[in-house]
């Protein structure tokens, strides 16, 4: 009798845990799209910490990086890596600046279609502003008790280096909790965003290119 009760208790706990993590398709994607559009329209700036983990399947290894993420409407993004090394990526309009080891490289996104597409994709994924994405992507929507998961499948040549992207949105405020970018080799990079602050007054200095 005691064994039977224990067995059912364990099964109940397992089922409850699975219910929290298992994702099921979203009933109304149109409603979610509208909610996302409304949410992103209210956001002028985002500031957060991030932990980036690169998983390499064949090697059973991972590389962990940390830093700060900044976003300012409409097209300014900065990723300021603090470990394991200092590294800065700034996207501001049609320009991208990369600072590594004190050396600065500036690129015009207009001159490189792939870079430009990737920049739009990253902006959309990191801010949850999915309506930015064009017909070159197939989106699949799912949800569990606490999050929406949106799977983005590139249809064009971006798929040569990105197989799929999974964005996990917090149901409470539709902010991005987690982002997973999977490569064709099945290695993937995951970003976890914490200490998120919306609509802080970010100076343009953070996004300066020159």
């Amino acid at each position: 009798m005691r064994f039977t009760i224990s067995f059912f208790y364990v099964m109940l706990c397992a089922w409850a845990a699975a219910a929290q993590t298992d994702f099921t398709p979203v009933a109304s994607t149109g409603q979610l799209d509208a909610a996302l559009t409304a949410a992103t329209n209210k956001v002028n700036a985002i500031e957060s910490d991030f932990v980036q983990t690169k998983y390499m399947d064949m090697l059973s290894e991972k590389i962990v990086s940390t830093g700060k993420f900044y976003y300012k409407k409409a097209n300014k993004i900065a990723l300021d890596y603090t470990s394991p090394v200092h590294y800065l990526i700034v996207i501001n309009g049609q320009q991208i600046k990369i600072v590594s080891d004190g050396k600065k490289n500036i690129y015009e996104l207009r001159a490189n279609k792939m870079m430009s597409q990737t920049s739009v994709l990253l902006s959309a994924c990191m801010t949850g502003n999915l309506p930015l994405l064009s017909k070159d992507y197939h989106l699949e929507y799912a949800e569990n008790g606490t999050q929406y998961r949106i799977k983005i499948l590139p249809l064009d040549r971006i798929k040569s280096y990105l197989k799929e992207i999974d964005i996990f949105l917090n149901k409470q405020d539709l902010s991005v909790d987690r982002l997973r970018m999977t490569e064709p080799t099945l290695d993937y990079t995951e970003y976890v965003f914490t200490n998120k602050k919306k609509n802080t007054s970010l100076t343009d200095e953070i996004f300066r290119i020159d």
Partner: peptide
Amino acid sequence: YRMVFNTHFGLGVFD
């Protein structure tokens, strides 16, 4: 030896 090079952003460059 196995050698994997990634961008700082995490994207694989070569393996």
